[in-house]
Design a protein around this nucleic acid. Structure first.
Lengths: 156, 156
DNA sequence: TTTGATGCAAAGTGTTTGCACGCGT
DNA sequence: ACGCGTGCAAACACTTTGCATCAAA
């Protein structure tokens, strides 16, 4: 039996949907709840999660729903690993992802850690970087110990 | 009529293939030359480029070839934008990619610019980042001027 | 000659689209 | 009642795989 998001949060979602002139459907509510539950949700993981709870939602609806929710700023996606994009609530989006090529684990880090770098890039190029959007690849501490030199065991 | 890589470089490629115990085929040579020419090559762009020159190479061969060449460290891939991965010579891989959400342009930057940040991340988390592997998203100077606030016109 | 590499076609994976129906408004 | 949102199936883009053939060693 899956956990439920706080009522206040659900209410907020409804309001934002409404404010954007979009319909509040059971599928969209379930979708948001599921994105809230799975903190890094792929389209497939959402379908599975929703099938496990009561409301099953069609895969195309998931894609269209995520697209719509992203357009109105409720969710955001990031590119982690090679599988499709992963979605999360926009409110929880201020972290960047370090993905390990060795074990695949994802380490979250507050974007503030990247601010000095972002500022340097901005000064040099005029480019304003958004680090929360894509994962940064590398090797975590453990995998560095296990295989410091080997870089060829994955398919990110 | 496409440009040709320096003979010395081609020779190096042959030697590396040989050293890795792999066969030096015309397809692999053509593939490397094409990756050299198109500096950020996708599988499709390679097939097209190769078809335009004399040697046409099958798409599956391109995939298998890139995979093999990557395994022995001659080429590397990076994830730029939403299309498939893009390949480049490993020797030319020491730059990171800033991709603009607005106009799609890719700005290259030497990885050394990210070293202070990489070191900070390493100290905080033990994670050793490889910035050349995935693009960093954001907005270039021009697009910041054109639409400073709007973040929703693309599909990265 | 031996076996890795290639071409072709078919299958796999992840995402998008056309259309008719149903439900939120 | 109107029209957006949904389910379904088919299309799509990209990548992988099985198998017979070919050519590098």
């Amino acid at each position: 039996m899956p956990a439920e998001p706080p009522k206040a949060l659900q209410q907020e979602w409804r309001e934002q949907l409404h404010a954007a002139g979009m319909r509040v459907t059971s599928q969209r509510e379930a979708l948001l709840a599921s994105v809230w539950r799975l903190r890094h949700a792929t389209a497939d993981s959402l379908v599975t999660d929703l099938a496990d709870s009561d409301t099953s939602v069609n895969l195309s609806t998931v894609y269209r729903g995520l697209d719509a929710l992203e357009r109105i700023g409720l969710v955001r996606h990031a590119h982690l690993g090679s599988g499709g994009p992963t979605y999360h609530l926009a409110a929880a989006s201020h972290h960047l992802h370090l993905q390990c090529n060795g074990c695949g684990r994802i380490i979250s880090l507050d974007v503030s850690a990247a601010e000095p770098f972002a500022d340097a890039v901005h000064q040099q190029t005029g480019f304003r970087a958004d680090f929360s959007h894509a994962a940064i690849y590398g090797r975590c501490a453990e995998c560095l110990v296990a295989a410091p030199a080997d870089q060829h065991e994955d398919e990110s």
